[in-house]
Design a protein around this nucleic acid. Structure first.
Lengths: 198, 198
DNA sequence: ACCAATAGCAGACAGAGTGTTCAGTAACTC
DNA sequence: GAGTTACTGAACACTCTGTCTGCTATTGGT
């Protein structure tokens, strides 16, 4: 038996209501009643789906991460050989589709819990990617691998957030991915316009 | 007339109580009464100092940023010539002194508002630094300057957070600063152990 | 087309937390 | 020491939470 149509409709309505309201007014200031009212759902029904507001937000985040993971997985294998930049590009595309949910997560709504889930998930993937690339190419990292992974994820996350908050003519995902790749390969010094390392 | 001693004591107690509690239980789950109880202050007194919990947290963040700004300002001028890495090092030192407050801000507590204040402040400083360095050295950035500043701040922030959450033998601030500088100059490709750009 | 299962509804409930007020008491500054 | 000011403790109405109730209407399976 597939999921009941009513359940599907309700979950979708709750999701849209939460995302929209958080985007407009901020997570802390919205009540469960605000959500149910916008979703056009009885308050009691809310509680038959989630324990509370946090629980709803956490589920949405988890689903998003699962979906992102599924889309990135096939690209990560080939990326382990050289830097293809494909996993990042895929993330940018996914983020553009799910823009509003990404925005509220990246803003740190919900006391940063969803953001931490997001970052942790990226770090796991990245650390594994780095490790397998090192091994495959027989090279040793020159700086602390923990720091390296965090730095890269931090860079991605910050750029992603910046990019998603631009609303009118956003640079295309491909261009942003290319800039991130340039930054990775040549460093910030080069990117600022300098030619030789200090 | 200097600030009343009672006021000073109360503010300090509120600060310590808030920071401690948020660190232990998370921002959303603590009440004003929790704070006043730990601070050993009447609840009414709380409201004579701040409008609400958010207001208190925001003030603490603002004060922290002012202090950080004051410490970095003299170092930024000389950094505009070459990359000295001194402003970053100063931030690391400041963060180590004010570790717990930094930690809760960086975690995104308070729906990420303090974190956004922090990031925005860093971006302002960084963008200005980049701009003046370009001008002084007659070079043009090779990639979008907005992205560049965000990426650098994102990297710093992520590393800072990672570093502050390590509790036992934290690598010294100087070492972390050096790694960040290496990353900036040579890029992540080099840092992973590869020799030549792809 | 029907029927059992189940999702959703409206409304009521106690309990917790908020933000304000106020008269009384202590501590501080000068 | 006198006058000012900060803190106290208790009470207030209010909002939001999370749970529970009996009732209704959709739904998926056969």
């Amino acid at each position: 038996m597939a999921e009941d149509r009513r359940t599907r409709r309700t979950r979708k309505a709750l999701r849209d209501a939460l995302v929209g309201l958080v985007l407009e007014r901020g997570y802390a200031s919205i009540t469960v009643e605000d959500v149910t009212e916008r979703a056009d759902i009885a308050r009691a029904t809310f509680y038959s789906h989630c324990r509370d507001k946090d629980d709803l937000f956490t589920r949405l985040t988890k689903d998003l991460l699962d979906e992102l993971g599924a889309r990135q997985r096939p690209l990560i294998a080939e990326n382990a050989v050289g830097f293809t930049g494909k996993p990042v590009l895929e993330m940018l595309r996914h983020a553009e589709q799910e823009r509003d949910l990404y925005r509220i997560i990246l803003r740190g709504e919900g006391d940063g819990k969803p953001l931490r889930m997001f970052v942790e998930s990226c770090v796991r993937v990245t650390a594994e990617e780095f490790r397998s690339r090192s091994e495959r190419n027989g090279v040793e990292p020159r700086i602390n691998p923990g720091l390296l992974a965090r730095a890269w994820v931090g860079e991605q996350t910050a750029v992603l957030q910046w990019w998603l908050e631009i609303d009118d003519p956003r640079p295309p995902a491909e261009e942003v991915a290319r800039m991130l790749l340039d930054l990775a390969v040549h460093g910030r010094y080069w990117a600022s316009g300098f030619d030789a390392p200090a």
